[in-house]
């Protein structure tokens, strides 16, 4: 066990899997010599060479399209998109090609690849260095979508994603890249995709979050406990596939649901989670499910703290739900 931050855990996972599996290659802007603008790929080119850790020209569509071709030819590419906000130039490749390749070829082909991207706000990044585009990807059948919140999960889930037979969009919460620290197992053991984790058992209200907002939800739950409100906190970790059993079992017990995400509310993944739980837990619900989310605006700069669903707003929602 070593104490790592989330960034180091990502780096550890890439290094571990590249040592284990010669098919794994990393490509993207500034990932090679520099080791990535966040340094997630630091040291990889020195160890694995320029053919396996590739600095590409500036074109996300090219990065993802080339990764798809590599996957067809038998490699396990792990392209990096420098910021999730710059995945949009690659959307045609991700949505039209990567997501549909298996289906449209009648299962003859697959593209096992992992598109890593730092996402999320709280770093003074304005519109284009802050967004949380998970809903776009979850909405596209054929993609798996994984969002770790802790270093341990970042390593275990990234290993699993690289070994997965399907394409995975791996969203890394850059706001806690360095702030999230914890014990990370050495070795190459993967964590299964599609399993949520109850990080805090509780009885009165279920609070669901992922990525950076899990840390806010956890903080809100601790503050609620001080007020005598007992929250159960779930870190979904994998949004597609979704661990609906864990969510439903929890809401069946608590009768209350607060969903937290930093993406805008309209058509955010929270809407789906609320719909799924009310379909299954309707007679158990004690209060309407509440979404604490980013707002229906582009991501702002100065007022980003107001925009983000941080602990105080989550706590407010928890109180309102319990008092309903």
């Amino acid at each position: 066990m070593a104490a790592l931050n989330l960034l180091q855990a990502v780096n550890d996972a890439l290094r571990t899997e590249m040592r284990r599996d010669p098919r794994v290659v990393v490509l993207g802007e500034d990932v090679g010599r520099f080791g990535g603008v966040f340094r997630a790929t630091a040291g990889l080119q020195a160890e694995f060479g320029e053919e396996r850790v590739v600095d590409t020209p500036l074109a996300e569509g090219g990065i993802v399209g080339a990764a798809l071709g590599m996957a067809l030819q038998g490699l396990r590419p792990v392209p990096e998109i420098q910021f999730a906000d710059f995945a949009f130039p690659a959307f045609d490749q991700i949505l039209s090609e990567v997501a549909k390749y298996r289906y449209r070829s009648g299962g003859q082909f697959a593209c096992p690849l992992v598109i890593r991207m730092p996402y999320g706000g709280g770093i003074h990044g304005g519109h284009y260095h802050s967004q949380s585009p998970e809903a776009h990807f979850i909405h596209t059948a054929g993609l798996k979508v994984v969002v770790p919140a802790t270093p341990r999960d970042a390593k275990g889930l990234l290993l699993a994603a690289i070994r997965d037979p399907d394409p995975v969009v791996f969203l890394e919460p850059k706001r806690v890249y360095r702030a999230a620290r914890g014990e990370v197992p050495e070795g190459d053991e993967a964590l299964p995709l599609g399993q949520a984790v109850v990080t805090r058992p509780g009885t009165q209200v279920t609070v669901v979050a992922w990525g950076a907002m899990w840390h806010e939800a956890d903080r809100a739950a601790r503050e609620a406990a001080a007020e005598g409100i007992d929250c159960e906190v779930i870190d979904l970790r994998s949004l597609q596939p979704l661990d609906l059993d864990t969510l439903v079992a929890s809401v069946d017990r608590t009768g209350r649901l607060v969903v937290v995400h930093e993406a805008p509310r309209t058509c955010g993944f929270g809407a789906e989670l609320v719909a799924l739980t009310q379909e299954r837990c309707f007679l158990r619900l004690e209060a309407p499910a509440v979404r604490v989310t980013g707002f229906d605006t582009p991501f702002p700069y100065t007022l980003e703290n107001e925009y983000l669903p941080r602990a105080p707003r989550i706590l407010d929602a928890i109180r309102r739900t319990v008092r309903f």
Binding site: G122, N305, L308, R310, P312
Partner: peptide, 10 residues
């Protein structure tokens, strides 16, 4: 809760 608009809280 004024902390909602308090940048330091982040």
């Amino acid at each position: 809760d004024p902390r909602v608009a308090d940048p330091r809280h982040a």
